[in-house]
Design a protein around this nucleic acid. Structure first.
Length: 430
DNA sequence: GTAAATGCGCGTCAGATAAC
DNA sequence: GTTATCTGACGCGCATTTAC
């Protein structure tokens, strides 16, 4: 029941995405499938056109700011305005797309954050004060300490842990910080390049793998990402370890385990990346009867007497994942014979593993057995793949749930802001 | 108590997609 | 182009809930 409601909500969101897509808006969700999104609001745009000069207030323009013919505005920090040309990795980019019917435009802001840019979505309303919101930790600071997104009194907000909305840095770009080097590029045009880019983005099919790859890539940079407050947040942390507890007695430099923690709505997901080593021993202390979702990892073990080792990547009920060694029967070993491809030494790293087929079969009965064995192998692989796919899907759904919560909070905050502004306006008129 | 409804996870297949 | 992997869809079994 709850899930039905949730899917109905997702459907509603998808409808919104579709509507945006039909209006030529690059869907951030489709583009990156990242669950870490933010909706911000700004003013500007009328009747399907975005006045380039109107999207950023004059007060926020630095002397180095360029307003290009195609509607692109470059905001340059003062210290870099002469010699530095903003690049994709150092600039915050925003694409404003007018919505049908006019009046409202949606802005997609790409914020550079390490090697993994973050994306922020914004709704622009003409001739109104707008609110820009970014959840805590999403890298709002990446705008640069002294960069402002202002349009007719827009305010940048940061959702704090209490779910409230608090104004944060509201500094003009004229006070540019030399150390930041951040520029802001407002690509307001709807030129062919943008359209082409949007088409390419929209053509991509959402993939759980991509989503999780992005999640893991975020982890690899050691970033901590939080969405929203009050228990609806998503946290991604990274903990590095070399020769950690879960590795083995082989705690030399050849063993490296990077453990990552993803916190989604209070649920922690632990993952461990095991860098190939010449010999691996697995921790067995975490095994219990609650293990589920066994997944097979192929690992080589050159140092031991066996030619290959198979471990299972198991997930406990609490989401914690373990490495579990598996005892293989002779038949299993025959089916899963693993040898190193590139050759390994006791000190070198394995170049890879390959599955070797059974010895040449001549007997028809053996051929049938081989066929059957291959089928079993394929089924087993597919079984594991299906488990992994379902796990990713569940994770993705959790991310979407969190996103829904964040968006609802933001919507609530926007409504409150609107109320307060209306009251303020009424008071001034009185 | 029992049957029906519902939810959930699993295995399998087939087609799409990614990787090589 | 081929192979491997991913994922939607389907059917099944089991546990829980609901209606009678």
């Amino acid at each position: 029941m709850c899930l039905k409601i949730f899917f109905a909500r997702i459907k509603t969101m998808d409808t919104l995405v579709e509507e945006q897509s039909s209006a030529g808006v690059p869907s951030v969700e489709r583009a990156t499938a990242s669950p870490i999104q933010t909706v911000v609001s700004r003013g500007g745009g009328q009747n399907g056109t975005v006045p380039s000069a109107g999207i950023v207030s004059a007060s926020s323009l630095t002397p180095g700011t360029q307003i290009r013919g195609n509607g692109t505005i470059l905001l340059m920090p003062r210290s870099t305005e002469k010699n530095v040309t903003p690049t994709a990795s150092t600039t915050t980019q925003a694409i404003a797309v007018p919505q049908p019917g006019g009046g409202v435009s949606i802005v997609h802001v790409s914020i550079p954050s390490g090697t993994q840019p973050m994306h922020v979505q914004s709704v622009i309303q003409p001739n109104q004060q707008s609110v820009i919101q970014a959840p805590t930790g999403t890298g709002l600071h990446s705008f640069g300490k002294n960069v402002i997104l202002v349009n007719k009194g827009s305010v940048i907000h940061s959702a704090e842990g209490d779910g409230g909305v608090h104004p944060v840095q509201l500094i003009t770009a004229a006070k540019g910080d030399a150390s930041d080097g951040d520029g802001i590029t407002f690509a307001l045009g709807t030129g062919e390049d943008d359209a082409k880019k949007r088409r390419e983005i929209l053509a991509r099919r959402p993939s759980y793998r991509k989503i999780l790859n992005e999640l893991s890539s975020t982890e690899h940079h050691g970033t901590v990402v939080s969405l929203g407050g009050g228990g609806t947040g998503i946290e991604v942390k990274q903990e590095g370890a070399t020769g950690g507890e879960s590795s083995s007695q082989e705690s030399d430099n050849s063993t490296a385990i990077t453990s990552n923690t993803i916190n989604v709505a209070g649920t922690q997901y632990h993952t461990a990346q095991v860098v190939p080593v010449s010999a691996i021993q697995l921790a067995t202390g975490s095994q219990d009867g609650t293990l589920q979702g066994m997944q097979t990892l192929t690992m080589t073990n050159s140092g031991s007497a066996v030619t290959g080792a198979i471990v299972q990547y198991a997930q406990g009920q609490d989401g914690q994942q373990f490495l579990v060694p598996v005892t293989l029967s002779a038949a299993d070993l025959q089916a899963y014979q693993i040898r190193t491809a590139g050759g390994i030494t006791t000190t070198g790293l394995p170049q890879g593993v390959v599955m070797t087929s059974a010895p040449t079969i001549q007997n028809p009965q053996q051929i049938a057995e081989e066929t059957s064995r291959r089928r079993e192998l394929r089924l087993m692989k597919n079984r594991e793949a299906a488990k992994e796919c379902r796990r990713k899907k569940k994770e993705y759904i959790k991310c979407l749930e969190n996103r829904v919560a964040v968006l609802e909070n933001q919507n609530k905050a926007l409504i409150d802001e609107l109320k307060s502004l209306k009251e303020l306006y009424c008071q001034k008129n009185d």
